[in-house]
Amino acid sequence: MLSPELPSPSKRTKITHHFPIQNSENSMEERVARMTAKDGLPLSVFVTSEDLQELFKAKGFLLLRSSTTIRMMVMNYGMTLRMKVVNELLQLKETGHRFSLTF
């Protein structure tokens, strides 16, 4: 599904585009993924930090106590984002749009 806020050809999409902050309905997976990818927090912090546990609990989320489970949660969310980007690129290609990718 092509998102309505696709960047114009002059704009470049960054990884942070996929982690919007303004949405108050963000899932726990999205929040943890954003904190690890954008802020550089290691996954072990989510297991050891009582403050983070309390913050997630206050938001209505129960953060898991295993770094392996948290890593799998982030990886699954990453795959969801990856499939979203692939679908957007396929739709652009099918409609004849030109684009380039830079890594």
Rank of each mutant, 00 (worst) to 15 (best):
I21L: 08
M35S: 09
T48M: 10
F19R: 04
V32A: 04
P20W: 13
T48C: 11
R31F: 05
K38H: 06
S24N: 02
K38E: 00
S27N: 06
H17P: 07
D39H: 05
L43F: 14
P42L: 07
N26R: 10
E25V: 04
A33N: 03
H18A: 06
H17S: 13
N23R: 04
S44Y: 15
A37M: 06
S44V: 15
D39Y: 11
L52D: 07
P20E: 09
R31V: 14
N26A: 05
S49F: 06
H17Q: 13
E30C: 02
A33F: 08
K38R: 09
D51M: 13
N23K: 08
E29T: 14
V32L: 04
N23C: 05
N23V: 11
R34M: 06
S44L: 11
S27M: 10
H17M: 04
V47S: 07
R34F: 10
R34N: 03
T16E: 15
S27V: 11
G40H: 05
A33G: 03
T16S: 14
G40C: 14
I21G: 01
I21T: 05
I15H: 07
F19D: 00
F46R: 02
S27C: 06
V45I: 13
D51L: 14
K38S: 05
S24D: 02
I15M: 15
S24M: 00
S24C: 02
T36K: 07
I15C: 12
V47E: 14
D39P: 01
L52E: 04
N26G: 07
P20M: 10
S44G: 04
A37F: 09
P42W: 04
M28Q: 09
F19K: 00
P42D: 12
E29Y: 10
M35A: 12
F46A: 02
A33P: 00
P42I: 14
K38Y: 08
Q22P: 02
V45C: 01
V45A: 01
E50R: 11
T16D: 10
F19G: 01
V47F: 11
E29M: 11
H17C: 10
T36A: 15
N26Y: 05
E25W: 02
H18W: 14
G40R: 07
E50I: 14
S27W: 02
V47T: 09
A33D: 03
G40I: 15
L43S: 03
P20G: 02
D51H: 13
V45K: 00
Q22W: 12
R34T: 12
E50L: 14
M28F: 09
M35L: 14
F19A: 01
L41D: 08
D51S: 09
N23H: 09
R31H: 03
S49D: 04
M28A: 06
E25L: 10
V32E: 04
H17D: 15
E50A: 13
F46I: 07
M35Y: 11
L43T: 13
T48Q: 10
N23I: 12
P42S: 10
T16Q: 09
N23F: 13
G40Q: 08
N26T: 03
T48S: 11
N23Y: 07
L43Q: 01
F19H: 03
I21A: 02
V47R: 09
E50G: 12
I21Y: 06
E30K: 07
R31T: 14
D51W: 15
S49E: 06
R34K: 05
I15L: 15
F19W: 01
V45Y: 03
M28T: 08
V47P: 02
A33T: 07
L52Y: 13
